[in-house]
Amino acid sequence: MILVERVTKRFGDYVALDDVSLSVPDGSLTALLGPSGSGKSTLLRIIGGLESPDVGSVTIHGEDQTSVAPQRRGIGFVFQHYAAFKHMTVRDNVAFGLAVRKRPKAEIASRVDELLEIVGLAGYQTRYPSQLSGGQRQRMALARALAVEPRVLLLDEPFGALDAKVRADLREWLRKLHDEVHVTTLLVTHDQEEAMSIADQIAVMDHSRIEQVGTPRELYDRPETPFVMRFLGPVTQLGDALVRPHDIALSVEPRAGSFEAQVARVVHLGFEVRTELVLGDGQELAVQLTRGEADELELAVGDIVHVRSTVLPRALATRAPEADALSA
């Protein structure tokens, strides 16, 4: 388990982390999710020992690591831009951590081959990083980090420099790899879809603080702040409340707590039908319907309909006004 307790980090006047605490359960894959500049990479680098906190402590498996050098933390770190050792072959890259630990040559060789097999780079032993694609380089970097059997694996935007297709493939692959290897993993990303699709647990960060920690489902369904709600999926405003566009029902007749609205635009996207409405007070509203629902209502531009939230309205705007002001 990784335990971060009350960590604060400043760079000059800029507060990168403000009294942050986090616990990452053993064997989990946790994502640190947040926009650029939210402090997530700094937190990861502090856990890895690449930065040191001004205040607070980092504990890994019960041992205080706050002032331990990265060399002795037993971590594996994967960088966004791979940090491949350009002058070494794939084999030497992966073997590096074992070589500096002076392990026997035969052991290193068999371990490297085994890892390259796992990451799907068997046969690439004698290539140089420049002869690999971005995705292959990142898999090599993962093998390199795993070779030293780290207690925790830290990934800093590992797919950030890759194109969409490779990114999606590697994401799936990482999830499977984690299910096989079970090393406690912390992954930094700004992509909510990436976090939702592979993480057991997500910590959402904004403005140098952790906003909320939970499973993807919890965060999506029960966001505690408007920021989390907005960051994890599309939102639209109905009255004073933030609602997801698919949590709004349309009806021809008025119902309890419904608002009157006029249809401004209907976009058919196959199974999904996206409808833009204008409420009586001029506020715009986006609603996501299935094709069946839309057909049933026979929606046409200019129609007057009644809208209401199908989930309990959460008066988010009043709950944390200062946080809302910050994220606006």
Binding site: G49, L50, F85, L154
Partner: peptide, 25 residues
């Protein structure tokens, strides 16, 4: 300095990092 940091996370000390990573590059 990313390669140097990577070497540090893999357990290489200052001199090893300099000799095996910095100097070759």
């Amino acid at each position: 300095d990313e390669q140097e940091q990577a070497a540090a996370t893999l357990g290489a000390g200052g001199w090893t990092t300099f000799r095996r990573i910095t100097l070759p590059s």
